[in-house]
Simulated scan of single mutants.
Amino acid sequence: MPSISKRVWGALALAVALPLALTSCGGDSGDKIVIGTKFDQPGLGLRSPDGSMSGFDVDVARYIANELGYPEDKIEWKEAPSAQRENLIQNGQVDFIVATYSITDARKEKVDFAGPYLITGQSLLVRADDDEITGEASLQNNKKLCSVAGSTPAQRIKDKYPGVQLQEYETYSECVEALKNGAIDAVSTDEVILAGYAAQQPGVFKIVGEPFSEERYGIGLKKGDSELRSKIDDAIVKMEQDGSWKKAWDDNLGGAGIPAPTPPQPDRN
Rank of each mutant, 00 (worst) to 15 (best):
S5P: 01
R7C: 12
G10S: 15
L12N: 00
L12R: 05
V16F: 07
A21G: 13
A21D: 08
L22C: 08
T23F: 09
C25M: 04
D31H: 06
V34F: 03
K38C: 15
P42R: 02
P42K: 05
R47P: 02
D50S: 11
G51I: 01
M53F: 05
S54M: 12
N66P: 05
G69I: 10
G69H: 13
D73R: 03
D73T: 01
D73M: 00
P81G: 07
S82M: 14
S82F: 09
R85V: 00
E86R: 15
N87R: 14
Q90C: 11
D95R: 07
V98L: 02
I103E: 01
T104D: 05
R107K: 13
F113H: 06
A114M: 14
D130T: 08
E136K: 03
S151C: 06
T152L: 00
T152E: 10
A154F: 00
Q155P: 04
T171Q: 06
S173E: 08
S188D: 06
A199K: 10
G203V: 12
I207L: 15
E215R: 11
R216P: 03
Y217M: 12
K223P: 10
S230A: 13
I236K: 07
I236T: 12
M239Q: 07
D242P: 15
S244E: 04
K247D: 09
D250S: 05
D251H: 01
L253Q: 01
A256M: 04
A256N: 09
G257P: 10
R268T: 06
N269H: 12
